[in-house]
Design a protein around this nucleic acid. Sequence first.
DNA 1: ACCGTAGACGGAACGTGGTTCCGTTTGCAA
DNA 2: TTGCAAACGGAACCACGTTCCGTCTACGGT
Lengths: 194, 194
Amino acid sequence: MGEAGPVRRVRADARRNTDALLEAAATVFATSGVDAPVREIATTAGVGVGTVYRHFPKRADLVAAVFRHAVDACADEAPALAAEHPPGEALARWLLRYTDFIATKRGLAAALHSGDPAFDALPAYFDQRFRPALDALLAAAVDAGEARCDVAANDLLRAVANLCGPAHDAGPDHARRMTALLVDGLRRGAVSPA
Amino acid sequence: MGEAGPVRRVRADARRNTDALLEAAATVFATSGVDAPVREIATTAGVGVGTVYRHFPKRADLVAAVFRHAVDACADEAPALAAEHPPGEALARWLLRYTDFIATKRGLAAALHSGDPAFDALPAYFDQRFRPALDALLAAAVDAGEARCDVAANDLLRAVANLCGPAHDAGPDHARRMTALLVDGLRRGAVSPA
DNA sequence: ACCGTAGACGGAACGTGGTTCCGTTTGCAA
DNA sequence: TTGCAAACGGAACCACGTTCCGTCTACGGT
């Protein structure tokens, strides 16, 4: 099931452009929304449209790639936080980080439900990356007696996501405050470690 | 607050075209989805695009008009059914009719949440037409002891709509069967009339 | 019945955005 | 240094929504 034969090395400029495109797209999507024209992204990346389509055959593929990239960045912070903070603290910090992810990517999330086949695999990817990440944090916190044990990672992910749902509220940090509240409750019901 | 002065009569051909467009749009939307190009609708209606835009300044206005038209058609059947059937029967029949409406207009419903200002008034219109219509049927059925009295029209509308939500199920009449189930429950808990 | 005109009509033309094509350039291994 | 597979750029193409404007016509007035 591994790679077959000597993988033809990707050219350095090709990799550089892929990265530039991913970064440019993230910026542009944040600035002008997910509907920003491909040309704008190409320009921002200092690249021709042809190059965009070489790396991402369809516009939706680029959107999907940006999404995965963001998911990765967020998920990868879980172990990092776990290494630098006590379990309960790490859990709280990561959930706040996750809150930002959800809040930031609302536009992308909407696009996911557009029916485009390029997005079909994203929900699964979302789960596959976030669930284990949160599971680890949660287990550690529970073990350390710093979080209650009757909440599943999945429920937590969904709950926080929903908490950030309706954006017709006060200040921009409303979501963070709500999540903080939730986390508070999460850390209270803890039982002492065995 | 009434009309001011002699309203300049609308030309006969103008009205004919509006009707033709509404009908054509409904057909095309059902056939090719809500994203069908305006030109296709114009052609189907036997009209030039200029005429489409004379009657509906924005594409979204046409979509909204078709939606309202469909709402009207469905709501107007309520009194008609009430006149031809016993209350419980009328109620059941109309809810099935409403189920078809929901199932058929899923595409339109999705468009409603696109943020286009042309759709802002539609949810209110939906309520304003359907709630009273169902209220009447429901009240009559309850009075006749043919339906339980502890269900609100609003809840029923929402429930049926949700029932038709996920379309990843079996046969195309899945929604109708689900609604039938619901209606069954509705008619059971009835109490004899006073 | 006939006119004059407000208003309607059709469809070419325009602007924007996605996608394709292809001649040119370039990283890299021999 | 050289050869070429692969990558690049961006003009060109196509599909849409929307606008413009010259032409046509319903209909109230004579």
